[in-house]
Structure formats: C-alpha cells, structure tokens
Amino acid sequence: MAKPPAPLEIPPPAADSTLAQRFTLDPFHILQLSPSATARELDLAGAHLIAALERGTPGAGRYDTPFGPRARDPDLVDFAADELANHERRIVHEIWARLAVRTTPVAPLAAPPPWTGGERALGWRRR
C-alpha cells in the first residue's frame, strides 16, 4: 500500500521577499476577516485566534494569502491587530486586501535550479 504523501510545510511570511510581504502580511488575511469588518469583529477575531493558537487548535496555525497558505503565530496576530487599530493604515490595508486569497500552495515561478554542490565539485572547499 502506498504511503500517504507527507504534509507540506507551510512557510512563515517572514521568509517572503519584501515585495511579497505586502500581500502575505496583510492584517485582514492574517485575521481572516473581510475589509468591511467592524472594530468589535477585529477585537473578537484577534482574541479568538490567540486563544486557538495557545490551545493548538488544528488550522489555527495557518492562514490563506494571495501567495498561498502561510504560518500564523500569536506575534503575527498582535501585529495585525495593531495595524488595523490605526485607521489610516487600515484604509490602505482594505485596498490591498482586495486581491483574492488562494487556499492551495502557490508554486514559485520556474527558475533554473542552483548548483548546490558546485563549490565542492570545482574544488573550492572540502567542508
């Protein structure tokens, strides 16, 4: 019987490039709220997510972004809540949050793979 495929590791948004973080660190995506959410909904969502992360609730450790799923932690939730507490920044985030999220991992654009063993193969290092 074939073994089930290993679950894909969800990358943290900190691993994304600066440009990609504009989408993967959007507070509305982190809190999984729509841009029209009220202040009360924001507070409730933040508290609920932190409690879920402390309990280890399945699914609480990930959220969907336009670049696919990303890993979520309590610090990220706090960051998102702080960002949305500032109304001027919230308006900007509302605009950026328009781009639809993707629930499945997004494969990076195909780039030629690096030659990881190149230095050793060319005799530049032994370690």
């Binding site: 440009l19 990609a20 336009p66 670049f67 781009l99 990076p108």
Partner: peptide
C-alpha cells in the same frame, strides 16, 4: 503580485 512572485535570482 506577479512582480512580487518573480524569482530573486
């Protein structure tokens, strides 16, 4: 988003 997803290399 398309530009942000461009490979850094």
């Amino acid at each position: 988003a398309e530009a942000a997803a461009w490979p850094v290399t």
